[in-house]
Each structure stands twice: as C-alpha cells, then as structure tokens.
C-alpha cells in the first residue's frame, strides 16, 4: 500500500460523493417545492374542520394577531397560543373565538382547538396533534373525554375521581395528558375573556 495519499484519487472520490449529494439535494428541493403547498393546505383544512366542529353555526373565521398580552396570558399558564380566530355567523355577527393552543402533557406538543362563545363558555374542543401514549394519553382524542369540557367556564380543574361543574374527570392512567389538555382549554378561556373584554373588532 502506498503511504502517500494519492491526491487525484482523493479528488475523484470527493467529487463523486459531492455529485451524489448535490443531485440528492436538488431532487429534494424539487419534491419539497411540489409537496409543501399541499402540506400547508392539509394543515389548514384540518384546522378548519376542527374549528367547525367546536363552533357550530360559524360561517367564517378571521385570524387575529397574537399580541404580547395574549402571549403573556399563555406563558403565565404554562403554554403557548399558536393561533387565535374570531368566529362569525352567516350574518357576520361575532359568535365566539377559536383558540389553538400548544401545551405539554406526558409529551410536548398537544395542539388543542378550543371554541369559546361570547358568554365565555366552552362550546367544544378538538385535538389537532399530540404525541401521547397510545391507549392512555391518546384517549384524550375520544369524544367522551372531549365532551366533558363543553359548558365549562372560568377555570377548568382536573379531578381524578369524578367530574362536576368545574372539574373534568382525568383519563385513568393519563393524568398528565388530562392536565395538558385542560391547560390548553384554560389558556383559551383566559385569552377569550381578555379578547371579549378588550372589545374585539
């Protein structure tokens, strides 16, 4: 074996590897350009469907700017507001808000849509995305669990034993997930209250 490194050989090897990588990157850029709009469209449709399901009778949703006030409320309650919408009915009257929050349960990234009507009462919630454990936390997606939030107002609590006016019953074995979802709902409630008190346009 030669001790000296053959520069030509190294160059050739490097060039081939570089060519493969360059072609790969170009190909990916092409596919990405084709699929990205679809991905965004899907996300929007999903969001739209979720909002329609939590806010009955809404015809249109106007996106609001996330102000520093909203951010502050969310941070204090330990979560984030991803998006905030105003729901309007067919005759353009404001009927409530739809707030999309991101909170942490057993794992990060529970994205919840909460519908809140003008009486500051929850009209429904839906979960857009979560990474919770199948069979336990992932049961938060079930209708029975989500329906518990309907009609709640103020601050929602989590009870391990039974549900009542202010508390929802946690999913057994997944208290952290239940807390995470509830957290998102509470953020949505305070943010909506803030919006309504501030007189949204």
């Amino acid at each position: 074996m030669a001790n000296k490194i053959d520069i030509k050989e190294v160059l050739k090897v490097g060039l081939i590897l570089f060519a493969i990588t360059a072609i790969a990157a170009a190909l990916l850029a092409f596919v990405n350009a084709k699929t990205e709009p679809l991905v965004e469209k899907n996300a929007l449709i999903k969001e739209q469907n979720a909002m329609n399901s939590v806010m009955e009778g809404a015809k249109s949703f106007d996106e609001l700017e996330i102000t520093s006030d909203i951010e502050k409320i969310a941070t204090e309650l330990g979560g984030e507001v991803e998006k905030a919408y105003i729901a309007k009915d067919a005759s353009d009257n404001i009927i409530g808000t739809c707030i999309i929050t991101k909170t942490t349960g057993y794992d990060v990234g529970i994205e919840t849509v909460t519908g809140v009507d003008i009486n500051k009462t929850v009209t429904g919630i839906d979960i857009i995305a979560m990474n919770e454990t199948p069979g336990l936390g992932a049961n938060a997606k079930n209708d029975d669990f989500r329906a518990q939030y309907i009609g709640k107002t103020g601050t929602v609590g989590v009870s391990k034993s039974s549900a009542d006016d202010t508390n929802i019953q946690a999913i057994s074995g997944a208290t952290k997930t239940s807390n995470g979802v509830t957290n998102g709902v509470n953020i949505a409630l305070s943010v909506s209250e803030n919006l309504f008190n501030g007189g949204i346009k």
């Binding site: 081939i16 493969i20 990588t21 790969a24 190909l27 990916l28 990405n32 991905v39 899907n42 996300a43």
Partner: peptide
C-alpha cells in the same frame, strides 16, 4: 456514506409525500 445519502434522500421524499397525501 454514499449509501446513506441515497437512503436519506428517498426517506425524505417518502416523508414529504406522506405529509402531503396521508397527513
């Protein structure tokens, strides 16, 4: 290294397609 680049490229393409068509 070349195999890894090739495999990673196809995986990323599949990932993009799944995101787009089967979210």
């Amino acid at each position: 290294a070349a195999y890894i680049v090739i495999i990673a490229t196809f995986v990323t393409i599949i990932q993009m397609c799944l995101n787009a068509f089967l979210p």
